[in-house]
Amino acid sequence: MSLDKTDVEKIAHLARLAIDDSDIPGYVRDLGNIFNLVEQLSDADTSNISPMAHPLDAHQRLRPDVVTETNQRELFQSIAPETADGLYLVPQVIE
């Protein structure tokens, strides 16, 4: 399988990842090689095989719906890039 420049740009957008134009040929090559490796899976007969999402086939545990975490806003925001009045700041989204 081969990917082209447009594919890589589209995936990079989906992943919200800025990539330099000069790096795109390298990603086209490397991702193409990796997907060629992955293509080997298409030869495996997986009819009637159920997908394995968890190694022990365990299910998510449920817990009582009660508050267990204490408010640590100041601690957590002390490592944030930019905050004000207890809120995280990002560039303006709505005019």
Partner: peptide, 20 residues
Amino acid sequence: RSRGEGFGDEVKRRILIGAY
């Protein structure tokens, strides 16, 4: 840009494979 600058090559490769 935060992600583009923050992650190295191998991490970016794997994020791209996974996103695809």
